[in-house]
Write a protein that binds this DNA or RNA. Structure first.
Ligand code: FES
Ligand code: FES
Lengths: 152, 152
DNA sequence: TCTAATCTTGACTGAAAAGTAAAGATTTGA
DNA sequence: TCAAATCTTTACTTTTCAGTCAAGATTAGA
C-alpha cells in the first residue's frame, strides 16, 4: 500500500499553490524549482490538476497557475481520488490472473479487505484540507493527528 | 494509494492456506489453481512468504505449504509489511526529483500526511487476523467493519 | 504586429513492477 | 538406487508507471 509518485508530487504542487498569497500565481518554472522536479514533470501534473478542476491556468506573459477554489475547501480525499485514478469499483474485473476475473466472484473475503482499506484511507483524507498542510511540519503533524482523533 | 499485486495475491494465498483443515498442506499447483494464477507466480509469492516466516514448506512427494503459525495469530499488518517491502522511514531520502532528497528536508507538511496515512492503514490492519478472512464475504465484511468500529 | 512568456499536448525513453520460464535441489517411496 | 513430486533460485520478458522532449497554442505587452 504505497502512495504513487503522481499522488505525492501532485499534492506537493497543490500545497505550493496554497502557500502563495491570495491572487498571486505560480508559473511552471517556479513550481518545478520549488519542488525540485523538472519543468516537464511539473507541466504534466499541473495539466492533470487543471483538467480535473483543482487549479486555474492562464497562458501568456503574466500567466501561471492558481487554486480554483479556496484551499480550505479542497479536501485531500478529492485530490487523491483524481491523482490515483480511482477505480476501486472495478477491482474484481481487473484481476490479472489467468482467469477472466477474480476466482471468488460473488463470495470473497479479500474484497472486503481491499474495499474496506480504501474506505479507511478515503475517510482519513476527507478530514484534511489543503490549507491544513501549509505551515511547519510540527504544526501540520499536530493538526493531522488531532483531526484523526476527532474523527473517531 | 493502491494495494500492489504482490500484496493482494500474497494475501490470497495465505487465506487459502488458512482455509484448509489443520495439518493438511497445499502444493504450488493447487494454490495456483485455487487462485487462478500461474504456478510460477504462485511459486514466487510462496517463496517470499516462506522466507519471511509466514508459511512452512516441505519438498518432495507429499510436500506442500502450510501456515507456520495458527491463522488467528497472523495479523494482516505483518503480512502487508513484508509483501509491500515497507520502507516508509526512508521516504524523504528516496525522492526521485532532480535534487538529492526532498526539497523541504527538515520542515515539510507532506511528510506528515504520508507517514500519517501509513500509520492509519497499519493500524487498521493490525486489528485483523488471517482467520477472520476465512468464510463468506458477508461474514468477513461484517467482521472487518465491526473490528474497525471497536478499534476507534 | 511581433516577440517573449506561458501553458498544452502527444510521442518518446527509461525504470520499476509483474509475470514467466527453465534448470536445480530435496524428499518420499517403490 | 532411482524416479516422481515438490519446492527453490535465477534469469528473462512483458507490462505499467514515471519522466522527458519537442512542437504547438495562447496571451500580454512593446
Ligand atoms: S472476488 Fe475480487 S477480490 Fe475476491
Ligand atoms: S521533506 Fe520529504 S516529504 Fe517533505
Amino acid at each position: 500500500m504505497k502512495i504513487s509518485a503522481q499522488e505525492e508530487y501532485g499534492l506537493r504542487c497543490l500545497v505550493q499553490l496554497a502557500s502563495v498569497t491570495n491572487g498571486e500565481t505560480l508559473t511552471l518554472p517556479q513550481i518545478a524549482e520549488l519542488e525540485g522536479i523538472s519543468q516537464s514533470n511539473a507541466g504534466k501534473l499541473m495539466w492533470l490538476l487543471n483538467k480535473s478542476g483543482f487549479v486555474k491556468a492562464t497562458r501568456g506573459t503574466k500567466g501561471g497557475y492558481s487554486l480554483a477554489r479556496p484551499a480550505d475547501e479542497i479536501y485531500l480525499s478529492e485530490v487523491i481520488k483524481v491523482l490515483d485514478d480511482d477505480e476501486i469499483e472495478g477491482h474484481c474485473g481487473s484481476y490479472t490472473g489467468v482467469l477472466d476475473s477474480c476466482v471468488h466472484t460473488g463470495d470473497c473475503g479479500i474484497r472486503s479487505v481491499i474495499v474496506g482499506l480504501h474506505e479507511i484511507v478515503q475517510n482519513a483524507l476527507s478530514n484534511v484540507t489543503l490549507s491544513q498542510l501549509v505551515g511547519t511540519e510540527k504544526k501540520v503533524d499536530e493538526r493531522f493527528h488531532r483531526i484523526q482523533r476527532m474523527a473517531q
